[in-house]
Amino acid sequence: MEFIFTLLGATLRISTPILYGALGEMVVERAGILNLGIEGTMLLSAFGGFVAAQLSGSIYLGLATAIAIGILLSLLMGFLSITLGLNQHVCGLGITLLASGLALFLFRIIYGGESIPPALEESFPQLRLFSGTILEPVFSQYVFTYAAFLFVPLLAWLLYRTSFGLRLRSVGENPEAADTAGISVFRTRYVALIIGGALMGIGGAFLSLAQLGAFTHGIINGRGWVAIAIVIFGNWKPWRVLAGALLFGGLQALQLRLQAEGVQLPYEILLMLPYVLTIVAIAITGRNASYPAALLKPYRREG
C-alpha cells in the first residue's frame, strides 16, 4: 500500500513540468500554432529563473523571470510565424536551437567552466498535506504541482466557457471565418502564445527553482517533446491532456522505482511507451483526431 502511495506521489511530481508544458502547448495549438520552440523555451526559462533567483536571492523574482522569458520567446515565435507568416515548424525548431544555445552560452559566461553549478540556497519548499497519515507521500508536493492541477479546470473553463476561448478556438479552426466575424486572428494568436509561453516558463521554473533547486544542461531533457506528444494524445482537451501527463509521469515513476529495486528490465521501453502510444493513437484516430484545422497554416488575408 505504501508502495502505491509513494509511486503516486512520484507520479504527481514527475507529471508537473510536463503538464505545464503540455497545457501551454495545447492553448497555442488550439489557436492554430504548433510551437516547436517549447523545448528550448522551457530550458531558457529554467535557466533564467535560476540565475535571477540566485542573483536576487528571491525565488519569486526567479519565477517571474522564468515566466517573462517564456513569454518573450513566445512573442518571438509570434513575430516570425504570425506577423511574418513563416513556416511554423522551422521557426519553432529555430527558437529551440536558439534558446538552448543561449542557455548554454550564458551559463558558461556566468558560471565559467564549473561542472557543478552553485545550487540555490533557498528553493521552493514542499507543502505537506495530511502529514503523519498514510496519504503523506502522495501530498508532499511543491505548490507548483497543486497549482498545475488547478490550471486544468481553469483552462477548460477558459477554452469552453468564455468568449475569449470561443475566439481562440475559432481562430485555430477557421481563421477566415473568424476574421469575417470580426475577430482579430493575429491578436488572438498572440494572446494564446503569451498564455502558452507563461505556462512553459512555469514548467521550466518548477525544475530549476523547486524540484532540483539547481540548473544543469540536461534539465529539460526532452520534456518539451513529451509535452507535444501528450497534447496529441490528449486530443487537444485539457482533462485528457492531464490524463496523458499522469500516464507519462506514472510510467516514469514506475521505471525509476523498478530500477531502484534492481529489477532487470530495459527501462527504455517504459520511457518510450508514451511516444509509441501517441503515434499509435494518431494512427488509430487518424483523420478523426480533433487537430485544430488551421494548425501550421499561417494566416494571410486574401486580396
Binding site: W225, M272, Y275, V276, I282, R287
Partner: peptide, 27 residues
Amino acid sequence: LLKVRLQVDEVVTTLLMNSVMGYIISA
C-alpha cells in the same frame, strides 16, 4: 505511411520518432 495513407501530419510523428530511436539506441 501515416501521412500518405491516413493524412496524419508528419511534422509531429517524425519528431516523436527521434525520441523513440534515442531510447532504442540507449537500450
